Computed example of a mutant assay.
Amino acid sequence: MEKSGDGSEKVVVGVVSAPALFRRWYAYEGGGAFVIVNKESDAHSTPRKISVSAISKIEDASISHSDFQGWGQRLEPFRALLDQVWRTRAHGDFWSHMLVAEGAVDVAIEPSLALWDMAALDIIVREAGGVFTNTAGESGPFGGSGVSTNGTLHNAVINGLNP
C-alpha cells in the first residue's frame, strides 16, 4: 500500500493465486492486470492482459455473489438488484472479482470482507479497467465489503444497493 497526496492509502500491487484453478492474477499501479494459466503440462505460461466487460445496461449484466448471508438491511435491495439483471451466479469470494477483471462477469458483490481479502482484488479490478468500492460506494478495499464492476455499471449497482 502507498499513501497518496491526501493522506489516504491505496493498493499499488496485488497478486491472487488459485492453484486449484491453475491461475494467478496480478496487477501493479499503471501497469495493467494480467492472468497466468498454468496447466500441469505447461509450467511456464505467458501472462495474458485482462480487461473488464463492455456491458452498459444493468438488464444485460451478469452478477456473481457469495450467498444471502451477511446482508442485513441491504438484503432486500440486493435481491431487487438481482431481479433486474440478466443472470446471477454464486461463485463467491475472490473468484467472482477475478471474473469481473477478466470480463467474464460484469459485477461481483460481497457483503462482508476483511482488508486482506480485498487488497489484491482492488488493484487487479482497477487495472483491468473496472471499479472497486464497498457497498456504500467508497473506493478501495477499506470499507468491510466489496463491489467490483466493469465501471460502466457501478453507479447503477451502488444506487440499487442503497435506495
Rank of each mutant, 00 (worst) to 15 (best):
M1W: 05
S4V: 15
S4H: 14
G5H: 13
D6H: 13
G7A: 13
E9T: 14
G14S: 09
V15P: 03
P19G: 13
A20H: 06
L21P: 08
F22E: 11
R23H: 10
R24L: 13
G30T: 11
G30M: 08
G31R: 09
G32S: 00
G32Q: 02
V35G: 07
K39W: 13
E40R: 11
R48D: 08
K49A: 14
S51K: 07
D60K: 01
S62M: 15
H65T: 15
H65M: 13
S66V: 09
S66G: 15
G70L: 02
G72P: 10
E76F: 03
F78W: 07
L82Y: 06
Q84C: 07
Q84P: 07
W86T: 05
W86D: 09
T88E: 11
A90R: 03
D93P: 02
F94Q: 13
H97T: 04
V100Q: 03
G103M: 03
S112L: 04
L113G: 15
L115A: 04
M118R: 11
L121N: 12
V125A: 08
F132A: 04
G137F: 01
E138K: 09
F142G: 07
F142Q: 10
S145I: 02
T149P: 00
G151P: 02
H154R: 06
V157S: 02
